[in-house]
Design a protein around this nucleic acid. Sequence first.
DNA 1: CATGAATGAGTTTTCATTCAT
DNA 2: AATGAATGAAAACTCATTCAT
Lengths: 188, 188, 188, 188
Amino acid sequence: MTKRDAICDAALELFAEKGIEATTIRDIAQRADAAEGTLYRHFKGKDDLAGWLYQRCAQELQSRLADATATATTPKETLEALIRGVFEFFGDRPTSCTYLLSNRSENAGGDGEASTDVPPPLGVFVEVIETGQAQGAFQNEEAPLLAGWILAMVQRTVLFLKAGTLDGSRASAIDRTVHGAFRLVTNE
Amino acid sequence: MTKRDAICDAALELFAEKGIEATTIRDIAQRADAAEGTLYRHFKGKDDLAGWLYQRCAQELQSRLADATATATTPKETLEALIRGVFEFFGDRPTSCTYLLSNRSENAGGDGEASTDVPPPLGVFVEVIETGQAQGAFQNEEAPLLAGWILAMVQRTVLFLKAGTLDGSRASAIDRTVHGAFRLVTNE
Amino acid sequence: MTKRDAICDAALELFAEKGIEATTIRDIAQRADAAEGTLYRHFKGKDDLAGWLYQRCAQELQSRLADATATATTPKETLEALIRGVFEFFGDRPTSCTYLLSNRSENAGGDGEASTDVPPPLGVFVEVIETGQAQGAFQNEEAPLLAGWILAMVQRTVLFLKAGTLDGSRASAIDRTVHGAFRLVTNE
Amino acid sequence: MTKRDAICDAALELFAEKGIEATTIRDIAQRADAAEGTLYRHFKGKDDLAGWLYQRCAQELQSRLADATATATTPKETLEALIRGVFEFFGDRPTSCTYLLSNRSENAGGDGEASTDVPPPLGVFVEVIETGQAQGAFQNEEAPLLAGWILAMVQRTVLFLKAGTLDGSRASAIDRTVHGAFRLVTNE
DNA sequence: CATGAATGAGTTTTCATTCAT
DNA sequence: AATGAATGAAAACTCATTCAT
């Protein structure tokens, strides 16, 4: 593992733990066992690093969701695959996910979408919902709003799981979230 | 209006606009037309001020929701009143609401609940949902989870309203959120 | 007791406890149960107050030493009376004494003598010693040096008494200091 | 010479000249020709720096006194060597000595001994005096008290020397202090 | 590539002093 | 006389960034 990777890992952890602003270059360097100056050999600065990590996390989630939907056929199946994909992403890459969903990404994205605190996979959800609506499987609510709601539910469930305040198992929480989302979008 | 109030107002605005960390004491003092030292006569420091504002906002929302539910009789009506109460609070006190729902309050609360990024009114929602479940009006999903989901939906809708990315009117968005929440919790 | 007196008492205590610089106007006002501005009605500022207290303490010690030597006849008796007078002063006015002997008076005196950290009663001691030398009772060492040494011994003994690190009683420590001073100055 | 050393030297000088509280970080940085922030790379803050300097000075004096007593055989000789050692230390390291003896070290030491304003070498003096008492060469007064008195005398003489208020030469003042200490402790 | 001491601008904080009440 | 909120200048401290090694 190169110093660059060590710095990325350390920064991702710290950004997820304390937020970008509260994390200092020295914090990152210490956890990465690197010198402070080394960071500047690979990134323009802290904001650049944060933006880069954000993009990397978003892309990873994106490609993971693409995989998740590959085998699904109906809109309902696809939506379920998407939701499970987000949870899976959280299981495998908890730090990335925490960072991505924590609303801590703040201005890390740089673009306008981030400013509304909507995580990047929103678009995929919107597409699926629109398809479902065209097929009459989903109710006719504004698709971005439905997508936003579902993502918000997932995000909140992830936080509950992290906090350990839910009754059943992790798998059960995921099942219930899928079920909840279906209640929200399906026609009956 | 005293200088203290001016400082509170200025700080609330700035915290909502830019977040706590990005707001400097100087920012606050300038907008409040006060000297920097004046802030320290009334608060221990920025964090103390942020915590105090958080408590004040939370209490205001709390009492507003108490009022909102006063005339409601059935759980369904109460839940609707709560949701509309949150939206109303946002209409009347947009800054307080933005601050409260922005996940920017970060560690301003100081207590455990804040750490899961759950806004304080969660408890009121949980109570109503449990009552509804006892009466057989609401489905038997874990009450805190349902409450969390609904609050997450409301929060997201508020953000969409702020961003102006929704199709219909503000009133329509509120109606649709109430409707969505019902789909989530009611037994058919 | 007037506010002015309360302020003086509070300031003297705090100056003795923490030193002049480490004591804030607010500290004084709080302990005196007075407003911060009240101090400025009676004194020009903190330094003025410190100087005034220093003078008052010094004068009190001075007059006490004058009394103490009133009944003494020989230089030896007078010297003993002076030393006991300083200890007595410390017993009756511990705060004043602490302040006076603490080398904390720093630049409170304003004059040159204070800069060498020599407490004001030095002059009285010098006179007695010179008289004793003229009568052949005391050894012919430079009188200010002898006086400085004796005062230094007394000061150190006072500190030991305050710290409670001495074996015998307070009275015994005083006796022994007198005895030690005699060894230093008498001709056999 | 590194910046760190420059900062230490500058701080020691300023602490000795004006005291710790009256010395600002900017004072130190300017005299050391360093940026203010540089100080914080090496020390936690002013108090940390002061404590570190205090320890360094105390150790230096300690080791110097150890050297001074190496060739002495009798307790009397050793005591003389110690006293001359303190004066020598003052000659070679006037700043360190001034700082150490100035009662300005205030709470810089952090330990209990410093609170009684007793400079660290007290212990060495106590040992020598106890040895002398065991051999019958010194009078049977409490050893720490005798040691405290002698150190107080030396300290006062040093201040007189700095102030230039003594009649004879520096060497003579030292001789006379040794002589005075002997009067205080020897049996006849 | 890697280092970490040094920088200095910006931020927080303190506190003696003033002044309207 | 007494008050205490307000001031603002100065102090302490932080930290992203640079650069010589």
